[in-house]
Design a protein around this nucleic acid. Structure first.
Length: 853
RNA sequence: GGGUGAUUAGCUCAGUUGGCUAGAGCACCUCGUUUACACCGAGGGGGUCGGGGGUUCGAAUCCCUCAUCACCCACCA
């Protein structure tokens, strides 16, 4: 089989993936933990097609996995999908809305079943797309977050925490979205700056001795006020503490209390306290044992605890009415504009209402403390390291975690309450039943489900069987985007330590977001989301992967750049054509059957360069410098191998060296361009069942360093001549054809390239031609370009003189000679010597050139 | 309010403990009718590394300060 002229990725990619998947290549062999390498894929949401960010995820993770596999590790890349509880349900609700329905038209079980089908369909699409991107995952270990083993693990953990008193049930303020009808964890609330107003309101003292003026941004909540607070050391209000005020509009009598929480400098220094609808107020209320008056319902309407006038109004309407009435009754002192931060539902943008609710909470203190310890001890390496500190800060300020969600799509909370007293809770994992009997009593299931992060936080071990855990836990690398550092990475660390007593992974690599091409964040509502699949179809999966990796470093957000993908596509084609050239010289023998025997200087040089490149790429990949590794590969293959070695090898190709080099290039390029390299490998091993994916990283080649250096000297000469006028070219039959102005240089060059003893000269009006005696090689000298070059040479001479000056003054500086590292000083001296020589050479050349003309 | 990161060529970005004339890709200009490749080859132009100050023999790199832009966190009514 011959390689076609251009690389057309979509002709090969699907077949190649099947070839891999059909073999055992993706399944790691059994072995020790030390000899293994694991990445458990952060499960993408199973509710939608993949976007380009997943392309980057796969590109990075798969490159690392393939590299470790080539290095001889038992590499496991475990794929998965996330049911993404609330996320998925809200996507599905949008589907329902199109048909004019809402989730409240269905029972929980019906809804659950419908979403299950919906997700099942999408999961197929997503799995196919991950395959198209070339991810070398072990599909036999594929895990969905609603698989029984994950649920079992979640219940096991839940029970353990329950038994140890870490999980508790409590009526507390939670972040509540009145539109979605569910509570959230703190991390899910999005704070936005909002231009609001701040109102100052007169609260008259009941004893008629005056008034106190409070400032608030939410006047409607005053319907539920149960106190006014001032700072204990505030002289303005010292005498008022202990008195009571008559709450305007509702006319309830509430006390004035003193609490450290109040900031004397803000507003009027007096704060209204609404324990039912504000987190701070709730804390103050607890300290002072204040009553809690809830005036906003879970649907976001004012309830029966408020005066009738306001009942069933929504919050914003109530606010307007309250302000109007305050003004009418002369309680309003002033209104000012006020910029402040307000929590919003991250999905629908509804203002989050702090709402009193019975929920399950997890006490985070003990878990966080352990996690902070391992983070501070650097037991886990972070790329970039700044993310580690960020996590510590987060963990240090963590509040208890609200585990309850009032949605259908998720893992039911395995808790049942005694229907007689509504207080006696028992743990039971028979969650398919609504009610159970125990000890002659009836218990009803908690209708809520667990926060999706609670189940997915066991991901590093729950995905693995018992025996797998021996080999693959802790995982080697957790590679993920920065947006889930806090909600997910932190919790995996806490739960891993809690359940397994070990860190869940040894290294964490955080990639930045792929932004839209203009640098803005991609979002569905803006409509600038980039779909990776058309990119894969147009340029190939390899080009997309390399294009995303190229020039991108850990933790940094960057826009998608199609030029990078085109660059990578061209690179794929370059490798392809290198393979075609080499294929011609192989004489039908399999690529890997050659052992290299370097003959010429260039042979030694390319083996040296190859060794250097494979070494650097290896080191960069080990340190997760994907972009740098790719860069080394790109320039080695293109500049060194294609532009220098192949060009110089055209006259007398050394097949074993070409074959060996290509063989190595395929291996070191494989992590970046798996499809392309495997396609070439398969084509060049027609009668062989071996797979490139299973080969081993290239061994260090043997070469002579001095001969390699010799070739670099030749390169330098050639470069100089090219600089004069372009063409070092090979005619049919392998003739050199060179334009150049300098006889001496030319003669040397011809000799070094063609190893000739003598040359003949022919001169005409336009220039001078040098021809080797056997007429296999000649140089054509063009006076016109020589003229141009003379100016450049003069410039060059000037540059060298400047450098000499700098070096000389540096070396005259005694502090430099004393303080700078000795080898640096020596280097400077050597360099000065070389520059001087170069200067002399150039001067003579210029003189000679004038003679030539 | 607190924190983090960024600012380098026309564009998108590299530049790991301070040390070769600051790099790449794309774009631009000149040249080339080459059986590996025009998804190509050779060459070229283009940057006072955001401004200012400091430390140092030496700063894109360390410190201070100012400016602009991102992002994250947060219970100041």
């Amino acid at each position: 089989m011959k390689l076609a002229k251009n690389y057309e990725p979509n002709q090969y990619e699907a077949d190649i993936y099947d070839l891999w998947e059909g073999s055992e290549a993706f399944t790691p062999k059994k072995g020790s933990h030390k000899d293994s390498f694991t990445i458990v894929m952060p499960p993408p949401n199973a509710n939608a097609n993949l976007h380009i960010g997943m392309g980057l995820t796969v590109a990075i993770q798969d490159a690392v996995i393939r590299h470790r596999r080539l290095k001889g590790k038992h590499a496991l890349y475990l794929p998965g999908a996330d049911h993404a509880g609330f996320e998925t349900q809200s996507v599905y609700e949008k589907h329902l809305a199109k048909d004019g329905k809402s989730r409240f038209d269905f029972s929980r079980d019906e809804l659950y079943a419908q979403i299950w089908d919906f997700v099942d369909e999408n999961r197929g699409i997503f799995e196919k797309q991950v395959r198209q991107m070339g991810a070398s995952c072990d599909w036999s270990r594929y895990t969905f977050t609603l698989d029984q083993k994950i649920i079992d693990q979640a219940y096991k953990t839940f029970k353990k925490m329950w038994d140890e008193g870490l999980i508790y049930r409590s009526e507390r303020l939670v972040n509540y979205c009145t539109l979605h009808g569910t509570g959230f964890a703190d991390i899910e609330v999005e704070h936005k700056e909002v231009n609001g107003k701040i109102w100052s309101i007169r609260y008259p003292l009941t004893d008629g001795s005056g008034e106190i003026i409070v400032a608030t941004t939410r006047p409607e909540t005053m319907l539920g006020d149960t106190a006014v607070a001032v700072h204990p050391k505030d002289p303005r209000y010292k005498d008022m503490v202990g008195k009571t005020v008559r709450l305007p509009l509702t006319h309830r009598e509430i006390p004035i209390i003193a609490d450290e929480y109040v900031d004397k400098g803000f507003g009027t220094g007096a704060v209204k306290i609404t324990p039912a609808h504000d987190f701070n107020d709730s804390e103050v209320g607890k300290r002072h044992d204040l009553p809690v008056v809830q005036v906003i319902s879970h649907g976001g309407l004012i309830n029966h605890n408020a005066p009738e006038e306001y009942q069933n109004m929504d919050v914003s309407a109530a606010r307007i009415r309250v302000v109007e009435n305050l003004q009418k009754q002369d309680f309003l002192v002033e209104t000012k504009d006020h910029l402040h931060s307000v929590g919003h539902c991250y999905k629908c943008g509804t203002v989050i209402e702090p709402m009193l609710k019975q929920q399950w909470f997890l006490d985070m203190k003990p878990l966080a403390t352990e996690a902070i310890k391992v983070l501070k001890a650097k037991k886990i390496t972070f790329y970039p390291d700044s993310k580690r500190q960020q996590l510590i800060t987060y963990l240090e300020n963590l509040w208890d975690w609200n585990l309850s969600r009032q949605i259908a799509w998720g893992v039911p909370i395995p808790a049942f309450v005694n229907i007689d007293d509504n207080e006696d809770w028992i743990f039971c994992d028979e969650v398919t039943k609504e009610e159970i009997e125990k000890n002659g009593k009836t218990y009803r299931r908690d209708p809520d489900v667990l926060d999706t992060w609670f189940t997915s936080s066991s991901w590093p071990y729950a995905t693995l069987s018992e025996s797998d855990q021996q080999q693959f836990y802790p995982n080697s690398l957790m590679e993920t985007g920065g947006e889930i550092l806090q909600p997910w990475v932190s919790r995996m660390i806490m739960l891993g330590l809690y359940e397994k007593g070990k860190i869940p992974f040894e290294e964490v690599y955080i990639h930045g977001y792929v932004m839209a091409e203009d640098g803005a964040k991609m979002s569905k509502s803006v409509g600038n989301v980039i779909d990776p699949m058309p990119v894969v179809e147009k340029y190939g999966s390899d080009a997309m992967r390399m294009g995303l990796i190229s020039g991108r470093s850990a933790g940094v957000n960057r826009g998608y750049d199609n030029r990078r993908v085109e660059e990578a596509r061209n690179f794929c084609n370059k490798i392809w054509n290198i393979a075609r050239f080499v294929e011609d010289k192989l004489d039908q023998k399999p690529l890997k059957s050659f052992s290299p025997k370097p003959k010429t200087e260039s042979d030694h040089w390319i083996l040296h360069k190859l060794t250097e490149a494979s070494d650097q790429i290896n080191k960069n990949l080990e340190n997760y410098k994907l972009s740098e590794a790719y860069d080394v590969l790109y320039h080695f293959v293109w500049d060194d191998f294609a532009d220098w070695y192949i060009e110089s090898a055209k006259t007398a190709p050394n097949a074993p060296i070409l074959a060996h080099s290509l063989c190595s290039i395929l291996k070191i390029a494989h992590p970046f361009a798996p499809f392309l390299t495997e396609t070439i490998w398969q084509t060049l091993h027609p009668d062989d069942k071996s797979l490139l994916i299973n080969q081993t990283w290239p061994k260090i080649g043997t070469y002579s360093k001095s001969k390699s250096d010799d070739f670099e000297k030749v390169q330098k000469v050639i470069s100089e001549i090219r600089h004069i006028k372009t063409t070092l070219q090979i005619k049919k039959g392998g003739l050199y054809y060179i334009h150049a102005p300098f006889i001496n240089l030319q003669s040397n060059l011809i000799k070094s390239l063609a190893r000739l003893e003598s040359v003949e000269q022919v001169r005409d009006g336009r220039g001078l031609t040098l021809i080797s005696v056997d007429e296999k090689c000649w140089l054509d000298i063009d006076f016109e370009s020589a003229e141009r070059f003379s100016k450049q040479l003069a410039g060059q001479l000037g540059d060298i003189e400047k450098q000499i000056e700098i070096l000389q003054s540096r070396l005259k500086n005694s502090t430099y000679v004393d303080k700078a590292p000795k080898d640096l000083v020596r280097e400077s001296k050597d360099k000065l010597e070389n520059l001087k020589k170069e200067h002399d050479l150039l001067s003579t050349q210029i003189a000679q050139y004038k003679g030539d003309l």
